Lab assay of single mutants.
Amino acid sequence: SEEWVEIALRLLELGREANINGTILNLHKEEIEELIRRLLKRI
């Protein structure tokens, strides 16, 4: 399964939302940290 691709796409999506909203992603901080942890486990 290409889970890391899904994770990377989700991170990009959150990054785009952050640019549009001008936020520092506090809302998504925990989700982002969890996604990155899952991503690093696969490398």
Rank of each mutant, 00 (worst) to 15 (best):
I36G: 05
E13M: 08
H28G: 12
N21S: 07
E30V: 07
L35Q: 03
G15T: 09
A18Q: 08
I32L: 06
S1W: 14
T23W: 10
H28P: 04
G15Y: 15
I7R: 02
H28C: 15
N21K: 08
E31S: 02
E6N: 04
E31F: 13
S1K: 13
E31W: 11
R38A: 05
A8L: 14
R42N: 11
E30N: 05
L12T: 04
E34M: 12
G22A: 11
N26F: 12
N21T: 03
N26E: 12
I36K: 00
E34F: 09
K41Y: 09
E33G: 07
E2H: 14
R16D: 04
L35R: 03
K29R: 07
R42P: 09
K29A: 12
K29F: 15
G15W: 15
I43W: 14
E30T: 07
L12Q: 04
E3W: 15
E2P: 05
I24V: 05
A8V: 14
R37K: 08
A8K: 02
I32T: 03
G15K: 04
N21M: 14
N19D: 06
R37T: 13
L9E: 03
E30S: 07
E17R: 04
R10I: 13
S1D: 08
I24C: 14
N21L: 14
E31L: 10
L27F: 04
L35K: 02
I32H: 00
E3H: 09
I32W: 12
A8N: 01
E30A: 07
I20D: 03
L40N: 02
L25N: 05
G22E: 14
K41Q: 04
L27R: 10
I7W: 11
G22M: 12
E2V: 12
R42K: 14
N19V: 14
I24Y: 03
E31A: 10
E17W: 09
N19H: 14
E17G: 09
I20A: 09
N19M: 13
E6L: 07
L39Y: 05
R42V: 15
L25Q: 11
E3P: 07
L39Q: 00
E2T: 09
E3T: 11
E34K: 04
I24K: 04
R16Y: 12
N21H: 09
E2F: 11
I7D: 03
S1M: 13
L9N: 02
T23E: 12
E3V: 11
G22W: 11
E3N: 13
L39S: 00
A8I: 14
I7H: 05
R10T: 02
R37E: 03
L14W: 05
R37H: 10
L40V: 08
N26C: 15
I32C: 11
E31M: 10
I7A: 03
A18R: 00
K29V: 13
E30W: 10
V5Q: 05
R37D: 06
L27I: 12
I20W: 13
K29S: 14
E30F: 06
A8M: 15
R10H: 06
I32S: 01
K41M: 14
L35N: 02
W4T: 01
E3S: 15
N21I: 09
K41V: 12
I24E: 10
L9G: 01
E3D: 11
L12R: 01
A18H: 06
V5I: 09
E2Q: 12
L25E: 01
E13D: 09
G22C: 04
I20Y: 08
I7S: 03
L14E: 01
S1A: 09
I36W: 07
H28I: 15
E13N: 04
E33A: 06
S1F: 12
I36H: 00
N26I: 15
L11I: 03
L27K: 13
L39H: 00
L14N: 02
L11S: 00
E17Y: 08
I20K: 14
A18K: 01
L9P: 00
G22N: 06
L40G: 01
A8H: 04
L27Y: 10
E13F: 07
K29D: 04
E2I: 13
K29P: 08
R37L: 12
R10P: 02
L25V: 13
I43A: 06
H28M: 14
R37Q: 08
I20R: 13
E2S: 12
E30H: 08
L11K: 00
T23M: 06
E17M: 13
I36S: 00
N19P: 02
N19Y: 14
R38V: 08
E33M: 14
G22F: 09
R38N: 06
E13G: 09
R42E: 13
E30Q: 10
L40Y: 07
L9M: 04
T23N: 11
L11V: 07
E33I: 15
K29T: 11
I43D: 02
V5M: 13
E31T: 02
L40P: 00
L39W: 05
N26K: 02
I24A: 07
R38D: 09
E17Q: 13
W4C: 10
I36L: 08
H28V: 11
L9T: 03
I20P: 02
E17D: 08
E6D: 10
H28Y: 10
E17L: 08
R38K: 05
K29M: 15
I43T: 03
E34Y: 01
L11R: 00
E33T: 13
L12S: 02
E3Q: 10
L14P: 01
I24D: 13
R10N: 02
E30R: 11
R10D: 06
E34G: 08
R16C: 14
L9Y: 07
L40D: 02
K41S: 10
I7K: 01
L39A: 03
K41P: 07
L35V: 04
R16A: 03
E30D: 12
L11H: 01
L27D: 15
L27S: 12
L12F: 03
K41I: 09
E2R: 09
E2A: 10
W4A: 02
L9F: 06
K29C: 08
L12Y: 04
I20H: 02
I32A: 02
L12D: 01
E3L: 13
I24N: 11
E33S: 10
R38Q: 08
